[in-house]
Amino acid sequence: MMEITVKVMGPLIKITGESTVLMNMPEESTVRDLLEALFRRFGEDLKQEVLNEEGTDLAPYYKVLINGRNTKLMNYLETKLKNGQIVHVMPPIAGG
């Protein structure tokens, strides 16, 4: 098993109750597998927030980062995870 540290922010904290969540995932798991495990753990509210209306992709402007890198610069939701990685599930954020 791999231990993945998941960090959430903004409105997602209200659903998960905490900003950091430790997840144990089987070897070879992907980002998609991790999201599904999170949805199983935290329920439909999280899924509705993170995924688009069709449930097929991340909601607009949502991002998943692995160690600070946008997974869209990798294999996106099919990117394979490694033990000890930090995954950010990031809602839209603005400022400056």
């Binding site: 960090k7 922010m9 903004g10 900003s19 980062l65 600070g68 950010h88 990031m90 839209p92 954020i93 603005a94 400022g95 400056g96």
Partner: peptide
């Protein structure tokens, strides 16, 4: 985002990046 959270919501986002 800006009306609800202001600009300081960037802190966690910038830190993640």
């Amino acid at each position: 985002l800006l009306p609800e959270y202001g600009t300081a919501s960037l802190v966690n986002g910038m830190n993640a990046f």
